[in-house]
Write a protein that binds this DNA or RNA. Structure first.
Length: 348
DNA sequence: GAGGCGTGGAG
DNA sequence: TCTCCAAGCCT
């Protein structure tokens, strides 16, 4: 039996990870959301931080969104943090703290889709729901040499049905974790460790040496160029920060005033006509700009930072100027964090 | 339902 | 330097 083989392998080879030491569905949920599209190595410290800062779903529900985002800083896909917060409030306020315990109920939480609902329901509650994540796609497509693209409707259905047909009836949670662990540590995208694989005897792609052909994917996202001009405006040892819109990239995070252009700007004079109204050209002194390319999965941000010394600030605008310590507490995206690390603005 | 949404590690 | 891509979800 295939499921017995990998479950046995799992019990002997699984990594010791903190979310495997608990049956608390709240903790398991946190780990699953943190690990969406994220490697264990990267997510681990965030998991430890979140269970420390928010030991219960009520603690998370009662936190300020800005603080949750600050704790999420650097992990990416920030809608996960906002959805996590909203779902915690949903559980605390509408479900009286009773954590949803079935696939169907779990899916009503923001940020919980098919994968995460199946993971939580099987691992925390023993429900017989097979997970299909990137690992499972890879393992199954290689095992049976399945050519159907994993990101087509047909493929999603096919792999879902296949995973369900293989699930262990008595230990669905272990089966799911075993499949993912196998994909993460043995059946890796590149250089799979086939000699160590518990399924080597029945793997079609090992037999035919076609591992690198699987899984099959379509629709590769192409990267688009964007040109961001950030105004690093200083006044009396404070820097102006503003919050990004609640939609789009880096939603709700703080950054410097931004002027987006359709190409690289070399001369500051080209930006003058687009300055925010609280920056009067007569009141400013421009420093030496610096450039940085920030790569995202779907965009290449060509960033240019323009240091600006602003002589006069009205009271209305003053509230957007922050001290070094205040800036440390603001949730910021990585482009801004990197800039601040590379360019100490505040001399000690 | 195709595209938007981050970051960093591996090769 | 460049490409791929990692325990996906939402619109």
């Amino acid at each position: 039996m295939l499921s017995s083989k990998i479950i046995e392998w799992y019990h002997q080879n699984k990594r010791n990870l903190p979310w495997r030491e608990t049956s608390n569905p709240y903790f398991i949920w946190l780990s699953e959301v943190i690990l969406q599209q994220t490697r264990v190595d990267q997510g681990l410290e965030y998991y430890l931080r979140f269970i420390e800062a928010y030991p219960t779903v009520f603690d998370l529900a009662g936190a300020h969104q800005e603080e949750v985002l600050r704790n999420w800083q650097g992990l990416g896909y920030y809608s996960r943090a906002r959805n996590l917060h909203a779902a915690a409030q949903y559980i605390a306020n509408e479900l009286n703290g009773n954590f949803p315990s079935t696939f169907t109920e779990l899916k009503k939480m923001k940020g919980v889709g098919d994968y995460t609902a199946a993971a939580i329901s099987s691992i925390a509650f023993g429900e017989k729901k097979a997970v299909v994540d990137g690992n499972v796609y890879r393992v199954l497509s290689r095992l049976f040499e399945i050519d159907t693209p994993i990101n087509s409707n047909k493929g999603i259905k096919k792999f879902s049905n296949l995973a369900d047909s293989l699930i262990d009836n008595k230990r669905p949670g272990d089966y799911n974790q075993a499949m993912m662990e196998l994909g993460a540590t043995i059946c890796k995208p590149k250089k799979p460790l086939c000699p160590e694989c518990p399924l080597a005897a029945e793997c079609q792609s090992l037999k035919n040496q076609t591992q690198q052909n699987y899984p099959v994917k379509i629709n590769k996202t192409k990267v688009r160029d964007r040109y961001f001009n950030y105004l690093v405006v200083e006044n009396e040892s404070k820097i102006f920060f503003q919050k990004r819109p609640q939609k789009g990239i880096w939603a709700g995070l703080f950054e410097f005033p931004l002027i987006e252009t359709d190409k690289v700007v070399e001369d500051f004079q080209l930006l003058v006509k687009n300055l925010p109204d609280w920056i009067k050209p007569k009141d400013i002194a421009i420093g030496i700009p610096s450039s940085k390319i920030h790569l995202l999965s779907h965009q290449r941000i060509n960033a240019r930072f323009w240091p600006i010394d602003l002589a006069k600030v009205d009271n209305q605008t003053r509230i957007n100027f922050f001290t070094e310590d205040e800036i440390e507490q603001l949730p910021k995206h990585q482009l801004i964090v990197n800039y601040l690390n590379d360019n100490p603005i505040f001399k000690t």
